[in-house]
Design a protein around this nucleic acid. Sequence first.
DNA 1: CGCGAACCGGACTAGACGGTCCGCTTTCTG
DNA 2: CAGAAAGCGGACCGTCTAGTCCGGTTCGCG
Lengths: 181, 181
Amino acid sequence: MTVLRADAQRNLSLILEAAADAYAELGPDATIDEIARRAGVGHGTVCRRFPTKDALRAAVISLRIEELLTHVRELLERPDAGVALEEFVWAAAESCRRDRALFEGIEQCEGFTEVADAKKELHDTVGKLIRRAHREGAIRRGLDARDIGALVGAAIQASLNAERGDSWHRYVQVVVDGLRP
Amino acid sequence: MTVLRADAQRNLSLILEAAADAYAELGPDATIDEIARRAGVGHGTVCRRFPTKDALRAAVISLRIEELLTHVRELLERPDAGVALEEFVWAAAESCRRDRALFEGIEQCEGFTEVADAKKELHDTVGKLIRRAHREGAIRRGLDARDIGALVGAAIQASLNAERGDSWHRYVQVVVDGLRP
DNA sequence: CGCGAACCGGACTAGACGGTCCGCTTTCTG
DNA sequence: CAGAAAGCGGACCGTCTAGTCCGGTTCGCG
């Protein structure tokens, strides 16, 4: 697989988009058939490109993590780490919210190096931001990048069970405020 | 089914305990076979007592909600609602932590009146506590019993993905602190 | 344009799981 | 203690789904 043929490349994009949509709507248990249907390709095409269901999930997840990584690198340029960290939390929340099932059950995908590496890189980069925020006294001690990621993901997940559509905003605010010293 | 025969009663208890254990360990998708195995009864025995998988989950969940309800009624006697609410949050967290999958995917069980009623009753009772805490200025506005339940459940769930075993404590603390005005 | 390689997709397989059924066993009552 | 009723549990069925395979199609290069 040196380079993909044009139709294969097109289908790959369609599958990734369809998978992201399906996960967002149906959770991580969205079936391969459903994803194939949304992408407008055959069941077999999905399975050939991604040897297992988890490999597909891993591909979608690592894409999203890369996006967050790009964002947090920009935020590192900001003078005020506390503000930057808060902005990152909101961005991460937005990402989780868009993809819902992005981080629920992410453990199953940690065996894939692409996900594990991307996650580690993200944690390291966010870690820098956190250390600077610590020095500024903007957030409490005892929480690392993994903790913050988990809390944000949890707040979003909690809002999925809520009736009111704006719950996620209030929940994330509780977490943001709870991060302070 | 006027009254259960002695062996049936015994098996019922075994099934409920085994189910709680299984949910705690494997999440809400624990199979009926697994639960039956843990209870030391046959697959058929479980299915006869509970017509569907969700009915069993509903039974376990409503038991736990009743326990919390008893607790929160005691807390209503306390003079300081803010402190009492905080204690309730910790109790709820402990309950979620013990049963893990207790509140993940609870929506599927809301069709069962036992769960819906118990949940409503709990929300009403916690609501009283919250209103008093509001009057005391102990917590922020804009959050109701459902929100707090969701946030606590989320914090616990977040800690399940964490490597460190004591994460749940820190996460719940973030939520507790975030509840303040 | 033509040919080989890459790719597509539906049919198929295998395994997991929820729920039913019925012959056998245990409990309760008179 | 004996008969009837309640309960037990494993075999069985239908369904769902992940992953494989191969005959037919499309692409891209020469």
